[in-house]
Design a protein around this nucleic acid. Structure first.
Lengths: 157, 157
DNA sequence: TTAAATGCAAATTATTTGCAGAAGC
DNA sequence: GCTTCTGCAAATAATTTGCATTTAA
């Protein structure tokens, strides 16, 4: 994990008068030990590998803090659970495409779509400051073989 | 309601060996009595105005049929509930923008974004046959006044 | 008649929350 | 020591489902 992230988080917590605890440390460590997307449950498992005592509640209470701090993005694709993306710090402008068949999430950057989004939003009376574009599509792999690499995958890109 | 829709639905039900009931009639009538988006709960209320005896279960059991039939689109914007859109028959190519602040949903059509979506999907190895693009943005109204027309609105566009 | 449909109440499931004890500062 | 944290278990809330009863065909 980039220590810049860690610093930023602890500064944020300190500024809010929040404390440094071993469970939070484990969750933070786990949250930025990967570049893959994960769910709250995924993160619980990852954090428990570092500190056995981490509870589901604490994960659910820590996630919004990381989101508020700006180091983690919450994404809801209309699946049963939310996904969290630790890559926005490195790639602040990426968008997501999710496969309708296998839930695979792919990140992409595209200047054109960013521009177009701004235009369309403005035209409709909106400001595209919270830029969230999602594309839902079918992966060719599924079409050809009837199943894809990660059929039940929880959105690991 | 356009009677073409009704015919299409009843044909679909008949083909599946499903029956015509007064509760289903009321739900179908309600579902296409508006061009606004609605939730399952909204639809329940609308259907009950037609037939008092309609139950929540029947609404939840009927909605997937209408979606499967192709006359209704289900949309999940990551809010607490799903929205249903009865306008795809008339405007098969529209996309949605949802306001991060007030949940207002706006429909729009844009040839450029459709083209771009196809290109991006292809580039990533996907087929954009299930075209779903969602833009999330802030409405200017909220920015200026701190609240917008339909602050707690359940997505009526 | 007989399979399908209904309403009710209970189940499901991700997430949230109240609370009493534990721990950071 | 005082406040924030934690884990646990119970609560929430949209949606789903089991079941006994009703109803369409």
């Amino acid at each position: 994990m980039d220590s810049g992230v860690r610093d930023r988080i602890y500064e944020f917590l300190a500024k809010k008068g929040l404390r440094k605890t071993s469970q939070r440390d484990a969750i933070i460590e786990a949250a930025f030990s990967t570049t893959e997307h994960y769910t709250a449950e995924d993160l619980l498992l990852m954090a428990r590998k570092i500190d056995e005592s981490v509870s589901r509640s604490t994960v659910y209470r820590t996630l919004p803090l990381l989101v508020e701090c700006g180091v983690l993005k919450e994404m809801d694709f209309g699946r049963d659970f939310k996904f969290y993306d630790p890559n926005y710090l490195d790639h602040p402008n990426h968008n997501h495409l999710i496969c309708s068949d296998c839930n695979r999430i792919v990140e992409f950057e595209d200047l054109h779509i960013d521009t177009l989004e701004t235009c369309i939003s403005k035209r409709l009376g909106f400001t595209a400051d919270k830029k969230i574009i999602r594309i839902e599509a079918s992966c060719d792999e599924f079409k050809q073989t009837g199943s894809c690499r990660r059929n039940a995958a929880a959105g690991t890109a």
